[in-house]
Amino acid sequence: MSDTIMKAAALDSEQPANQEQESVLSVNGVKKHYHVKAGMFKPDATVKALDGVSFSLAKGKTLAVVGESGCGKSTLARVLTMIETPTAGELCFDGKDILSLGKDAAKALRQKIQIIFQNPYGSLNPRKKVGTILEEPLVINSDMSKAERKQKALAMLAKVGLRPEHYDRYPHMFSGGQRQRIAIARGLMLDPKVVVADEPVSALDVSVQAQVLNLMMDLQEEMGLSYIFISHDLSVVEHIADEVMVMYLGKAVEYASCEELFANPKHPYTQALLSSTPRLDPAHRREKIKLEGELPSPLNPPQGCAFHARCRYANDRCHKEQPALVRETNAQVACFAREEGRIA
């Protein structure tokens, strides 16, 4: 733990400005609603995949977004990388609101936010050679010559721990871990500042997972990258993140620094998540909090706090009103029980 703090302190001392100024990416009240046809004669239903999410990401830091299926973490990834346009909200990159920019300016900014996907078997075009895959972003976005492109691709291959002869191979000749390295290399070809990693290691084996995580941290240090690290695996998050945002059904329920969140989880859902994660060392195990019931469907969200049906602290107010994120000393938490002082 001390190491991470040291690292954070070192970075802070380089840029003594406050967090708002050094943030590369800040997101304010972003919403993404989908309209779903319910039937020929019924009105369209609205799925609030993302319902008002705000955060700011500092340079060289990692923000982990944690949650279970349907919590909107993948939608967040798609909105951040501009694969989808948000229904409402602000996306500021380097202080510029991306959504209000013209097409060309937005395209230039878009290069600076890249994405790495979960499944390394689906994210590489099976009909293209590794070299072609790596160079594609350059072909589209730059006017580099063929030789320059190749040189850059080879340099990037070396950076992610692959060899020059891999340049002429097809993706199916690689193992999962190597494919994920290629996917990371492709994401970095345009020298992005922010990399959105959508469950980058959950499809990998334990030993390979560690290799890829190390690689991601090395690259972060070397290139000053900021990561949005989307994951459901809390033990991985604990290792890589500086800040953590826990999401439930399209909303952030807790947003805190990594140390604080793991030492002192505040939201009942965060507590349950932490206690549900199996631990190797009996000393690390927490008292099990049994969560009843299923994740609610985003198509038919419960009234009030989305978590109230599974929460042991829920009262009448939780059934009716939706809690908002409230800033506390070390964290932001959206919970009435906490606001009212019913839980410590």
Binding site: T81, K107, R110, I115, E136, I140
Partner: peptide
């Protein structure tokens, strides 16, 4: 809807490409 298409899109590929 495969990821590799989306990543090309993120890289800025045009519809024709």
């Amino acid at each position: 809807n495969k990821d590799y298409v989306i990543s090309s899109r993120v890289a800025g590929a045009s519809s024709l490409r």
